[in-house]
Amino acid sequence: MSPSAVPRPDDAQAPLIAASDLHTWFELRQWGFLRLGAVRAVDGVDFTLAHGEAVAFVGESGCGKSSLARTLLGLHRPTRGEVRFAGRSLGELKGRALKAYRAEVGYVQQDPYGALPPFLDVRRLLAEPLIVHGVRDRAERERRIRAALEEVRLSPAEEYLGKFPHMLSGGQQQRVVIARALILAPRLVIADEPVSMLDASVRVEILELLRHIQCERGLTLAFITHDLSTVRHYAERIFVMYAGRVVESAPVDDLLDHPQHPYTQALLAAIADPDAANATRLREVPAGEPPSLLHPPAACRFHPRCPHFMAGVCDRHDPPDFEPRRRHRSACWLHR
């Protein structure tokens, strides 16, 4: 997917973050020097996110979505390609500039309990990013911590400031995680499976909260999930990932209602909405399992499992991005 050729109608400004030809491979070595191969976690991804946009990256475990998140966060160095944030390449950022970038990007993790240091209370753990970024004034820190807690609707803030993570419920923990991600006033928030470890009744709350804050603050939100059913109301665009690549991307409704790529179709068919009738019918599931990222299949990564496999095409040539519908891209030879 070359840089988004589909600007949003109301969005003429420069993109906030863009990835081009992004590869993040992890080399496997033995004894420090023998190269055994590379795990191709992110293997050629292009996209552009505009200011204030909420997008979702969807895929199964091992599709590289979390590695993509970490690459965007600057926690992994891309093997090839680059990430540009507000016009500057991430690879060029060093020292102070890199640190400044870290304040621009908030990170919400999957496991809220694990994401909070268990030995710090809420006040201290929220103060940490501020201290790291040189907010020396105690009163100023306190003010921002309280504001952040209020923003994630943990109010009154006093009630939570002195608590340790284990004293909070899962939903409250995740709110604290979100507060920490927001406390440096980032322009981009990356949420990696923010609700998958929470109970059904809490999930919606957290998703609503994220969406609300994103709209209020005009943030760009990249939301990473394995669960397509949680996406509809909380993102504007979806990127479907499979084996390190984006196979399909489109505005949410278009993608959910008219999936183009066979993998997306399979994914949608596998997900049930609660309905008693589900118990009586078998679901169509593509055979096999997601490929190993160490030795991914040649050309189209999905071809060994694809019901529409075309010998000599799908296993020979990498499918380019086609645009079978308006603003709807799909990397599949079926659209040729």
Binding site: A103, Y107, Q109, A115, P129
Partner: peptide, 11 residues
């Protein structure tokens, strides 16, 4: 994860 978070905010 909390260590990763700390890296992400620049500790």
């Amino acid at each position: 994860p909390y260590i990763e978070a700390a890296r992400a905010y620049g500790a």
